[in-house]
Design a protein around this nucleic acid. Sequence first.
DNA 1: GAAACGTGGGGGAGCGCTCTCTGAAATAGA
DNA 2: TCTATTTCAGAGAGCGCTCCCCCACGTTTC
Lengths: 375, 375
Amino acid sequence: MRFLGGERRRFGIVHVDSATQRRPLKDGALWYREVIKRNGLRENQMRRPTLEAVAARAGVSRSTVSRVVNGQTTVTPDIRDVVMRAVNELGYVPNGAARNLVTQRTNSVALVVSEPPNRVFSDDPMFSTVIRSAGIELEAVNMQVVLLLAGSPESHARVETYVAGGHVDGVMLVSSHGADPLPVALTRLRVPVVSYGRPAVPVAMPYVDSDNVGGAAAVRHLLARGRRRIATIAGPLDMIGGQDRLAGYRDVLRDSDRRSIIAVGDFTRESGAVAMRQLLADDPDLDAVFAANDLMAIGAMHALRQAGRRIPDDVAVVGYDDIEAARYTDPPLTTIHNPHAEQAAAMVRLLLGLLADGSADPSIVSTELVVRTSS
Amino acid sequence: MRFLGGERRRFGIVHVDSATQRRPLKDGALWYREVIKRNGLRENQMRRPTLEAVAARAGVSRSTVSRVVNGQTTVTPDIRDVVMRAVNELGYVPNGAARNLVTQRTNSVALVVSEPPNRVFSDDPMFSTVIRSAGIELEAVNMQVVLLLAGSPESHARVETYVAGGHVDGVMLVSSHGADPLPVALTRLRVPVVSYGRPAVPVAMPYVDSDNVGGAAAVRHLLARGRRRIATIAGPLDMIGGQDRLAGYRDVLRDSDRRSIIAVGDFTRESGAVAMRQLLADDPDLDAVFAANDLMAIGAMHALRQAGRRIPDDVAVVGYDDIEAARYTDPPLTTIHNPHAEQAAAMVRLLLGLLADGSADPSIVSTELVVRTSS
DNA sequence: GAAACGTGGGGGAGCGCTCTCTGAAATAGA
DNA sequence: TCTATTTCAGAGAGCGCTCCCCCACGTTTC
């Protein structure tokens, strides 16, 4: 092994079986008592330098060091240099908790992902895109993202307590479905909250959404290609995204006097495959399908192939989102480009505006049809 | 619009163009001054109740309230009830910053994702799996995940400062490549750090890895299938994962007296396609390819189809990771199942052990060949 | 019945920082 | 030369919480 590790640490390779892996863990709150007790003074000795220490070394007051560290300009250059030297020599870094306590600000925001359990295990790239984009945008202004998973009802209480505890300056809410109590609960906390996509419940919460005409554009495209029996695989109808994309589909078909053929999925590949099989059973002659996201489109393509249909010759397929994978399906998937990264960045800006001056200028990012060979 | 929003907030839909979206943002640290100034006393009035307030209402001391809130058992049931009533009436939630300051513990850990920029925009589900699994595991012990992106050199300083600032109790490092200074820098900070996968540089840091014999198993499988010219698309060679999987490939081929045919990718689909084309140009007669991850395998399949090769008839393809998408390729992809979720959970447990008592029992999760129809 | 012990609650220090207030020194003005 | 004004550093009061220490009050022991 290559660990050079210390006294009490044991290193080495151990194969763990699933039983061991699943053992319950002690509550976080319990440890620190034990740890403090065990480490006793040692902890004190190796404590990081404080403002006080830097001040002593530089021969100035705490206030002055604070001013220097925070970049205030009312400090004479000479003194500034002396302080900076002391800071570097001691390796001083301000203590975040102390700063948060007095400023009442944490410079971090929560990203609350409120997703149903079945989606947790599907690997929808939407989530990683949002997380990443929001993270990048926040880091540009020196703020951090705290990820809060709110999949289960129990975790809701945890999330609420965390937010109410003043750990974050604001909240970004992603993917809430109709019955989700979180949007309402969070707004009651008097903490700035914004939503990724229009909230499914009526609540006074600024949001950034994407232009939902995409669903309509997809169907018009299929119509223009001469398709006559166009089915759709809708997303969960308790989510706004699911509703809106379905509405777009319906509107266009109604206008062109065609029948709607609808199956409902839950945004996972598996559900797309299941829905496609059902659609095929309902109407064997369908010649096109519009899926409310790419993952379901991929599942649908899989089911179509298994049923012996050629794409796009027998059945045309259009997805939604334009995830990277859409470029690599066989054939490449026609889809609606939905700029999740931009939308996430816009959400961050919305929240920052709220934090800075209470302003909330929502924005809508626009979608665009990307025609590939599946249609 | 459905915003019911307050006085100074402006709601409404505004289309933003990319130029506006990209405007630079004020530094986080600058606002709070403005905000404090602007809000003045109002902020004070609506401050959340403190321990003091609860104590006053319950007619006991701060200490007693603290004991009750923290679940200490040395409080008489009567008093406990009185305090709890006051807590509920006031809606008291302990202030996190104050608690962190005095306990020197934050109950949150950082997940540092140190990934090269080109991978940021590829949607590798590995990252979301790790993030999600680690998050779930930590929430079980009431701790939070703070996501720190360390893609660029500039962001390294930010990450270091953040960690040094005591904002987190420990650090989980993901996906570091050879030249990454972060592992070394972080260990110097005297903060518990664990790594997802063996660090690429020799450093005293506990890690959880996956059993890298997978590469070998994949190649043996292809050999058993009667394939004679087996190529590989390796991952970045400055990452341990890339090295190890390549080593497995090489070892098996050497033992069976066959020639290695190697191209290098960077774990993205695009790079897999590029590498496949190159491989095909180098050796048009190859009859199998082992890609170091599924994303590259998907890219390779795409390139093979474009080159008119049938899979698996002409060329067999094997991937690595067994991401969800591998089940939905055409044909479904044979791959090495790599339990990222389990590995992430094990990493969390490793870190928690370190935090609790300095113990670090590393573990290796095992991989397994999953045969589908691409080979 | 006095001394010893145990038990539950209050007092108060202090975690590390920011920021207002104050005062000293430097500069300007008369 | 003396006062008015500005500039810049220090003193000190908290931010909201935890936890050590101690005291008051029972309860036991000899």
